[in-house]
Design a protein around this nucleic acid. Structure first.
Length: 257
DNA sequence: GTTGAGCGTT
């Protein structure tokens, strides 16, 4: 959402995106706009928000009209304290205009600024090392929203990932166990769908009227109807993965992208 | 109400 009032990405014909990291969770585009607009022509500012709470994720994207201005903003705003937090400004690596960056001469976001000491962020080195790993995985998965949303939705996963990368980078798990858990999840999922534990009545035998007593056939039909086709691509089943090796169903091209 | 490595929307 741009704070310009438009829906979706505006004109990205000749815009350079900057990634703003380390911003506060309360910082909005309105707060960043005047700051970045001072150093150049800001086309649009976009701050990803969580799907659940709608709160900022802690980083923002600022699109500049010209590269030189963007570069200047990076040098000027990188390390600037905003709302009591030191933000990190750098060129966006991935995005709708990533090609533009590659085509341009800014393909190297490496801090060549000699006039600025980078000794304030020792964390940068770590991120640089992780960049290739994450990049490789991202490219391999070819933009998977299911995994992305799953990771974002489970705060526990986030903490785990954070810790794992900070301590040891070898979160290897036995494959056999994974398979077992997968089977269990599948069965559990199927069971939960039919039983509806979330809204299960305390006494389904007595409370419900005999007529209203749901016939097992109706529920089953409903469940299968939903199971066959995902109601919405956004709310895909948490553990429900599309085609699997054990599911010999002919996949269509509509599922992919 | 919390959290702090990261990469984006109709």
């Amino acid at each position: 959402m741009s704070h310009f009032g438009r829906s979706g990405p505006p004109d990205i014909t000749d815009t350079y995106s900057l990634l703003i990291l380390n911003i506060t969770f309360r910082t909005t585009a309105d707060d960043l706009f005047p700051l970045f607009d001072k150093y150049g022509k800001v086309v649009d500012i976009f701050i990803p928000k969580d799907r659940r709470t709608g709160d900022s994720r802690g980083f923002a994207f600022v699109r500049y009209k010209y590269a030189d201005e963007a570069q200047k903003a990076v040098d000027r705003l990188d390390g600037r304290v905003v709302d009591g937090r030191e933000i990190t400004v750098q060129f966006a690596k991935y995005g709708p205009n990533a090609e533009r960056i590659h085509k341009g001469k800014i393909s190297e976001p490496v801090p060549r600024s000699k006039y600025r000491s980078r000794s304030r962020s020792p964390r940068r080195k770590h991120r640089d090392d992780y960049y290739r790993d994450r990049d490789y995985r991202r490219r391999s998965r070819s933009r998977s929203y299911d995994r992305y949303e799953r990771d974002r939705y489970r705060s526990k996963d986030r903490a785990y990932r954070r810790r794992s990368r900070s301590r040891s980078a070898s979160p290897d798990y036995p494959k056999g166990r994974g398979r077992e858990r997968y089977d269990d999840d599948r069965r559990s999922n199927s069971r939960s769908m039919s039983a509806s534990p979330a809204r299960r009545s305390p006494s389904p035998r007595k409370s419900l009227s005999p007529r209203k007593a749901s016939p097992p056939r109706g529920e089953s039909a409903d469940r299968r109807s939903r199971d066959r086709r995902s109601p919405s691509p956004q709310s895909v089943s948490p553990r429900g993965r599309p085609a699997d090796s054990r599911s010999p169903s002919p996949r269509n091209s509509d599922v992919d992208e």
